[in-house]
């Protein structure tokens, strides 16, 4: 489904602040796979998402999605294939527009927008039944501006919107990190049921080790722009939060080792 090869991305190239955010990363995702991505800050998780979604195209490397080479596609063109939910619960919806208008924008993801009605009459029924799944009563508030909803409600809405048209790939960038534990749990349950029901190919970044272990079919740990650990479902089943934190520490020691090498050589 997704084949990323030799993805390399620098920030501030050619300056003293040069950072290599992705270091020749290879990743192959099979259809229907749900992958959790973990890694410390600055390990390149979000940059990887940016390379795939088109917000931060790589300097080298190739991205193939749904057997199309999308490496050079602009972000808006990729949107037809990719559904996204962001960390900021306010980022995925338009506050000044109503719930139904937001959903109508999402149901047209990747389609040409012409001069037909922005919200079709027949679409409202679909929106109502989809919203009813949330059990938040939003199906009765179709014309309310989204700005009136809470962060959790908005994130749930964004999640529904991203899957309203089935995406070839769903990207979740720490989408529960800004929510309180109870709401985060609800949004995570909704994520699972949507992903399972539609068998969505999904990449989820998380800092929550328990989430990373309990959800998905595969677990990837990134460090310094590379994938350093890759657990399949069987390996994952044996993992504990403690093991993962251990891995984080050994990655950090590895980093320190590099540093001391450099110091010696310097």
């Amino acid at each position: 489904m997704l084949e990323a090869s030799e993805l390399t991305k620098y920030f501030n190239r050619g300056t003293v602040n040069e950072v290599m955010a992705l270091n020749g990363l290879d990743l192959t995702v099979t259809p229907g796979e749900f992958i959790c991505i973990i890694g410390s800050n600055g390990s390149g998780k979000s940059t990887l998402m940016g390379c795939i979604s088109g917000t931060a195209p790589p300097d080298y490397g190739k991205t193939i999605l749904n057997s199309q080479d999308i490496t050079l596609w602009p972000e808006y063109k990729r949107a037809g294939l990719i559904g996204r939910v962001f960390q900021d619960p306010l980022a995925g919806t338009c506050a000044s527009m109503s719930i139904e208008e937001n959903m109508a924008l999402a149901v047209r993801r990747g389609r040409r927008r012409g001069f037909r009605k922005g919200v079709g009459n027949h679409e409202r029924e679909l929106f109502r039944s989809t919203l009813a799944r949330l059990e938040l009563g939003l199906e009765k508030r179709l014309t309310d501006p989204v700005g009136l909803l809470s962060g959790g409600q908005r994130q749930s809405l964004t999640l529904l919107m991203s899957t309203l048209i089935q995406p070839k790939l769903l990207l979740l960038d720490e989408h529960t990190a800004a929510l309180d534990p109870k709401t985060a749990g609800l949004v995570m349950d909704l994520t699972c049921s949507l992903v399972e029901q539609e068998r969505l190919t999904t990449l989820m970044i998380t800092h929550n080790m328990q989430q990373a272990i309990s959800f998905g079919h595969r677990l990837i740990m990134m460090h310094q722009g590379k994938i350093i650990l890759d657990f399949d479902q069987a390996d994952k089943a044996r993992l504990t939060v403690r093991d993962l934190i251990q891995q984080f520490h050994s990655a950090a020691i590895d980093l320190a080792g590099h540093l001391s090498d450099r110091l010696v050589l310097g």
Binding site: A79, S96, M97
Partner: peptide, 26 residues
């Protein structure tokens, strides 16, 4: 105009350009 698909995309561009780009609008 603002009730058409294009008009809704205009409104969304003013409100949340990142969001509407992720939904396929240039």
């Amino acid at each position: 105009l603002l009730r058409t698909e294009f008009g809704q995309a205009l409104l969304a561009t003013g409100d949340n350009p990142g969001m509407i780009t992720s939904l396929g609008v240039n």
